[in-house]
Design a binder for these strands. Structure first.
Length: 427
RNA sequence: GGAGAGGUGGCAGAGUGGUCGAAUGUACCUGACUCGAAAUCAGGCGUGAGCGCAAGUUCACCGUGGGUUCGAAUCCCACCCUCUCCGCCA
């Protein structure tokens, strides 16, 4: 959520900055709503103040055993008008809140203005794509060739966009997650957390997934309780650790890493990436989350992105770092870097990590704050990034480390988590 | 799943219709005393929002949402959560 003070001060400027991301901010509608809110809030509070004063008088008179008829008569007339005012005010505030909840974050000034991914800016490149002296296979052919990746089984058990892994491949998948967790905790100073995979609506509102993106989520209705949602990313439960909390400034920065499955319905994505493990309804991810002081958040974004890059480097996977343009960024983000890994079979780079600074956008929604000494609470800045998407990393390893005979070399960095195994081969 | 108890400020814990945003203790902050510390004493110490240049002032908040009332932490209804015992279970 944006700072309403900023909107009151200069809605036109906000509209201009939001236009850069293709969002139309209706200034006239906002100002009309805000004007009405102001009028009704003032009047409501005046009426409440009057009622409170008179009611207190009644109490005092009764305490002294005096007659209260006159005051009772005076306050009696207030009831209906006050109720109307209160109702109207809460309607207006709800309307204003709904409107603001649907407004995306402002892009940081360093973000390039552009419509879509074609305007993203390549920041850097690491590694050189390997040349193969045989025809490369994609991860589906490789995995099925090994007899360790089975989409047909997943279709039978559940449906499309799920996968079944077996044997060495399943272990490689597990090894990747363990490896990432160990690197981030031991080398980058993150605290490992284990969190629920089902969350309530409040948590999703906090991170900005609701109310706008409900169709991307899997819902779990419960007959006798509030419905829950499967997490689309660990960002949701982990960032919400700080919801409605005020932490001491000395405890910052907070750095958490979590390995969780992620569930995405992505109702709008049918037809895209239908082959293989690139776009699944269920995938594992190791997520990095940081909560920092506002002045530190852009340095933290660079550091956090670097932490994700470290994983790719240790695995020897070529990648490039893209700064997303205004039109390609997520709803809540002020600035995002995507890391794109080289996939030989697609002869292109594909997203494997997305690292964002949300500034105070999420913190404001979830009232996540810090306090210096006895001072006033201030909003934190929140960041997160994939470090990395496990399934896509697995795809990248299969394709980049494939051999002519269809076997796959295990990257050296992973071997300690693979019991020393050097190569995946068909059984 | 069954039976019972309970949710009040950072923590503990009073408060069962009126001057209660809430006693008291503790923690914390400032000051005094002290060479310094401890102890002691004095003061301060919740969150969100409105109006205002400001000083300030008004409103809301006692698990959440409704209701009764001139007035609700207190009464009524629903929900959520926690604890204890029993049952079941990895």
């Amino acid at each position: 959520m944006l700072d309403i003070q900023l909107l009151r001060k200069d809605a036109a400027l906000v509209a201009e900055r939001l236009a850069a991301r293709g969002f139309v901010f209706d200034v006239a509608y906002f100002e009309e709503l805000e004007g009405a809110r102001k009028v009704f809030q003032t009047r409501t509070q005046e009426a409440q103040a009057k009622r409170n004063t008179l009611s207190k008088q009644i109490g005092m008179l009764k305490g002294k055993g005096e007659d209260t008829m006159a005051v009772m008569a005076e306050v009696a007339g207030l009831g209906d008008e006050l109720k109307d005012l209160e109702n109207r005010l809460s309607e207006l505030q709800a309307e204003l809140n709904d409107f603001l909840m649907g407004v995306p974050n402002l892009p940081h000034e360093s973000v390039a203005v552009g419509k879509d991914e074609t305007a993203n800016v390549e920041v850097s490149r690491w590694g050189t794509p390997k040349t193969f002296d045989f025809t490369v296979r994609d991860h589906v052919d490789l995995g099925e060739g090994l007899g360790q990746l089975d989409f047909a089984a997943a279709v039978k058990i559940t449906g499309s966009r799920f996968s079944v892994m077996k044997g060495g491949l399943a272990r490689l998948h597990r090894a990747l997650a363990q490896f990432m967790l160990d690197v981030h905790t031991a080398e980058h100073g993150y605290t490992e957390v284990y969190v629920p995979y089902l969350v309530n609506a409040d948590s999703l509102r906090g991170t900005g997934n609701l109310p706008k993106f409900e169709e991307d989520l899997f819902q779990v209705p419960r007959p006798d309780a509030e419905k829950l949602y499967l997490i689309p990313t660990a960002e949701v439960p982990v960032t919400n650790l700080l919801r409605d909390e005020i932490v001491a400034a000395e405890s910052l920065p907070l750095k958490f890493v979590a390995h969780t499955p992620c569930f995405r319905s992505e109702a709008g994505s049918y037809g895209r990436d239908t082959r293989g493990m690139i776009r699944q309804h269920q995938f594992d991810k190791v997520e990095l989350v940081q909560m920092v002081k506002p002045e530190d958040s852009y340095a933290a974004l660079e550091a956090l992105t670097g932490h994700a890059e470290t994983i790719l480097q240790k695995l020897g996977l070529p990648y490039r770092k893209m700064a997303l343009c205004s039109g390609d960024m997520g709803f809540s983000s002020a600035k995002t870097y995507d890391l794109e890994v080289w996939l030989p079979a697609q002869n292109t780079y594909r997203e494997i990590s997305s690292c964002s600074n949300f500034e105070a956008f999420q913190a404001r929604r979830m009232q996540a704050r810090f306090k210096v000494g006895q001072g006033k609470p201030e909003l934190l800045h929140t960041l997160n990034g994939s470090g990395l998407a496990v399934g896509r990393t697995l795809v990248a390893i299969l394709e980049n480390y494939q051999n002519a005979d269809g076997s796959v070399t295990v990257p050296e960095a992973l071997r300690p988590w693979m019991g020393g195994l050097e190569r995946l081969t068909a059984a």
